[in-house]
């Protein structure tokens, strides 16, 4: 074995992602995880509208906030231009390590940046050791966890939402405006078609209630939505329900759907195939409701109730309404 000098990055860039005009909650976990390395943290913001994010970012230890923009072609919703602008900022500020959320946006943007820089990229990290550039990530649909050593000039990591609890570390952040003139001649975003699923984004939800084969039709999902409203949860589904056309694919949890990592996952009438577990096995607490006590989900849950979901879920919803903590939301 030969000893090599690691090019330890002194600055870590963090892609800041917004939702409804606010920084995504899961982002503070990413910042907290990156802070452990003890390097200077640069927040990279690509929103075109001026959003005052200084307060929220400096509470978590961000020292520099780089507001990226581009003229005449703006950055909004165009990942090709965003990737180019971010690379320019990385080079300008000497940022060699970049982190973002493993969200739909991150899954599109981080590999564009990595590909352009010919840099290593590990997506969906459960943990990153920034000193040695070793990332832990699930492979084989969560059946294994791999320790991946990355080597190169740049290091890019997508962090799975909710793996690190956000911890405050207040400091004073400086805002830096960074204007570019990037383009994307052969790639244009023409339109955005709104999706059919309502409510919270599955992959970053804290609580998810999912329905499977036992749901029987689209209308019956209402009882899950009623419950989700009280819990401030997202509603998911198993592959059976998606293939039957009861709910859109965006709601599917599992191997060929969303990978989720909530604090609480409530599986209603889901038998619990290997493929479904692939998408939700890292959930903090799993609750199963099933008429079949021998269903795989019932055998691999934290709390199970043997019973008909059409009876159990409405009772659950009604009783939840009486929990004072939930009513303060």
């Amino acid at each position: 074995m030969t000893l090599t000098t690691e090019n330890n990055a002194k600055k870590i860039g963090i892609l800041i992602e917004f939702e409804n005009g606010k920084i995504k909650k899961a982002e503070y976990g990413v910042i907290t995880a990156a802070r452990e390395a003890g390097h200077e943290l640069y927040a990279l913001v690509t929103e075109t509208e001026e959003i005052d994010c200084r307060e929220s970012l400096q509470i978590y230890g961000i020292e520099k906030i780089v507001m990226l923009s581009s003229k005449p072609e703006h950055l909004k919703q165009n990942p090709v231009r965003q990737a180019k602008a971010i690379i320019m900022a990385m080079n300008h500020f000497g940022i060699h390590t970049l982190c973002g959320l493993t969200s739909p946006w991150g899954k599109d943007l981080l590999p564009r940046i990595a590909a352009a820089l010919d840099a290593p990229l590990v997506i969906d990290c459960l943990h990153v050791n920034f000193a040695d550039n070793i990332a832990q990530k699930p492979q084989y649909s969560g059946k294994t966890v791999a320790d991946i050593k990355v080597r190169g000039t740049y290091y890019i990591f997508g962090i799975r939402p909710n793996v690190t609890e956000a911890v405050e570390a207040p400091c004073r952040a400086e805002i830096i405006h960074f204007e570019t003139n990037v383009d994307s001649k052969r790639f244009k975003v023409k339109d955005v078609k709104p999706g059919a699923s309502r409510g919270v984004n599955l992959s970053e939800a804290d609580i998810i209630i999912s329905g499977g084969r036992a749901m029987r039709n689209t209308e019956n999902y209402k009882i899950l939505y009623d419950c989700a409203e009280v819990l401030n949860a997202a509603v998911g589904a198993s592959r059976v329900a998606v293939d039957a056309g009861w709910v859109p694919h965006a709601m599917q949890v599992g191997q060929t759907g969303a990978t989720v990592n909530p604090k609480l996952y409530i599986a209603c009438g889901i038998s619990g195939s290997v493929q479904h577990f692939a998408g939700m096995k890292t959930a903090g607490i799993i609750v199963a409701v099933n008429t079949d006590p021998d269903a795989n989900m019932m055998r691999n849950c934290d709390y199970g109730i043997t019973g008909d979901l059409f009876e159990i879920v409405p009772i659950f919803t009604r009783q939840l309404k009486e929990v004072p903590e939930l009513n303060q939301l």
């Binding site: 840099a119 290593p120 791999a146 991946i148 990355v150 080597r151 096995k281």
Partner: peptide, 18 residues
């Protein structure tokens, strides 16, 4: 020059209270 190397794999087990 850049590379990604799997140093170690672990089969995951999640203990549930059941």
């Amino acid at each position: 020059l850049a590379s990604m190397e799997i140093l170690k794999l672990q089969v995951t087990t999640y203990k549930r209270k059941n």
